[in-house]
Nucleic acid binder design. Structure first.
Length: 472
RNA sequence: GGCGGGGUAGCCAAGUGGUAAGGCAGGGCUCUGCAAAAGCCUUAUGCGUCGGUUCGAUUCCGACCCUCGCCUCCA
């Protein structure tokens, strides 16, 4: 059975069949960050989920081209730049660097390409021009350009592919900016925004006058530029389904670049939001965590990645500090098992991966990326291996085969259990002294030495095969 | 008001028309000089409430309650 997952376009679970006739190449686009501030755990859930999707596709043997935009021009950025009195690139570069560092901390593979909005004005202007030419967009006297949903529909397109919208019941009004009064219809959205004094130095020339691009157009222009006018996968947070993704479809398919029946994107995936401590994340509730906040509390990127990857991407997930603590314990259990396997496999020749674990994990992930079921398979496996290890039933060859299976899965999970480092000679010397004391039944001295070793950051684990040292 | 997700043990979270994965926490045990660490075992007659369909429902249907998201630039 192959990979299947829910496509927002059809609201049904579909088999994944890439557009590539060879069935090998996969184009994947994920809406990236707006670099106006530090990203928070909620944002990272989307990016970690995208990383999982990408890694799973790679595991399945697809040649994935992973693209993520960097939105470096937008209302909030402009507002910050104005109050901070700095150049826009200087401002956004800082947050972009932070963002990429956070992605690395979370063990994400960086996208193959990360196009910037400000570097693709020409592409956006070309696309807007095509939309105007086709009559699905119009310019207004102030120099703005809007997308006309009515004209788009009159040309046989469907607006409302991702969400079921009842336009008669839309609650509109309060969020519509006063500079958009010139729109023909309230539902129309901006492709190009005419320069206003508040924009400061943030504007570009265009055939319609100076201004800046609307938010949605960058994703249409850049995704089609990098991945072609029609590509396989587009993901993003669930809040982006409407209006952002819907408008992306409209802008892209409205330009008349596609053949009949050809779509801008074949599969859309939306990642559900995070709750934090059972509540919507909000600065006022104090549950608004950036990665930096969590690292400051002593949690690691690996633990955060693990926690974010324990729940199914389409379910809203309750992210808690207690859960983070649990993640640490769960990972330690996994690490412990792997360390024992490494020990047991010492000297064994490279082995073919044990098939059972991979089979059950694959069945889980192929089923709409059911990562929870995948973890269940892994921990069931841990239990089995621990038992076999305890009963001395694992030959070096079997242990090596088990490890080989784990390595394959970790290429997907990316929680990499690093082998524990060797203890320094002085610690080993103390351990030897303790052993001597124990042998002499001088338990007072041996306990003192144990405390000493602990104070230096190592924990003694007395096992039937003798003592072992672990970093505290 | 409209549309779309959810409500499963103390917490987090899969799943199924035939009697509930996994993780954390808790309890018991093993090992140990004692600990620690680790390991093993264990923990839901029950899956929001009330009806209905069915031989059988947590799973399907209906109503209701609660909760989350979107409804024009929020992952």
């Amino acid at each position: 059975m192959g990979l299947r997952f829910l496509n927002t376009l059809s609201r049904a679970v579909e088999d994944f069949v890439p557009l590539d006739p060879q069935g090998r190449r996969v184009g994947m686009y994920c809406c990236g960050p707006t670099v106006y501030d530090l990203a928070h755990v909620g944002n990272f859930r989307t990016f970690v989920s995208a990383d999982l999707v990408r890694r799973w596709l790679e595991f399945k043997g697809y040649a994935v081209q992973h693209v993520m935009n960097i939105t470096d021009v937008e209302d909030k950025i402009i507002a910050r730049v104005r109050s901070a009195q700095v150049a826009i690139t200087e401002y956004t570069r800082k947050y972009e660097e932070e963002f990429l560092a956070d992605l690395r901390t979370l063990g994400c593979r960086l996208p193959h390409q990360m196009p910037h909005a400000t570097a693709h004005l020409a592409e956006m202007i070309t696309l807007i021009g095509q939309l105007l030419e086709r009559g699905v967009a119009y310019s207004t006297p102030d120099g703005s350009v809007y997308f006309s949903i009515q004209k788009y529909r009159e040309r046989g397109h469907q607006y409302g592919q991702l969400v079921n919208l009842n336009f008669e019941n839309l609650r509109v009004g309060e969020r519509v900016r006063n500079d958009e009064y010139a729109k023909e219809s309230l539902a129309d959205f901006a492709l190009w925004k005419a320069r206003v004094p508040e924009d400061g130095a943030v504007f570009w020339p265009s055939p319609w006058g100076e201004g800046r691009p609307g938010w949605h157009i960058e994703c249409s222009a850049m995704s089609m530029k990098v991945l072609g006018r029609s590509f396989d996968l587009h993901l993003g947070g669930e809040d982006l389904a409407f209006p952002h993704h819907e408008d992306e479809i409209a802008q892209s398919e409205g330009a008349g670049l596609h053949a009949p029946g050809e779509r801008f994107v074949k599969y859309w995936l939306h990642v559900a939001h995070l709750l934090v401590e059972g509540k919507k994340m909000a600065k006022s509730l104090g549950n608004f965590f950036t990665l930096r906040d969590l690292l400051g509390k002593g949690h690691t990127g690996r633990e955060i990645r693990y926690l974010l990857l324990t729940a199914h991407y389409r379910e809203s997930f309750n992210f808690t500090l207690e859960g983070l603590q649990g993640a640490r314990t769960a990972l330690a259990r996994l690490d412990e098992c792997l360390a024992k396997l490494r020990e047991a496999a010492a000297g064994a020749a490279a082995a073919a991966a044990e098939p059972q674990l991979i089979a059950s994990f694959t069945a889980a992930l192929d089923d709409d990326f059911n990562i929870s079921a995948g973890w269940a398979a892994i921990f069931e496996w841990v239990r089995q291996k621990n038992k076999a290890l305890a009963e001395n039933q694992l030959t070096p060859a079997l242990a090596a085969a088990a490890l080989a299976a784990w390595e394959q899965l970790d290429a997907v999970l990316g929680v990499g259990a690093q082998a524990a480092g060797e203890a320094p000679a002085e610690i080993v010397a103390l351990l030897e002294q303790r052993q001597a004391a124990r042998k002499a039944r001088d338990f007072k001295r041996s306990d003192t030495l144990r405390d000493e070793i602990k104070a230096r950051g190592w924990i003694i684990e007395d096992t039937p095969k003798g003592p072992k040292l672990k970093p505290a």
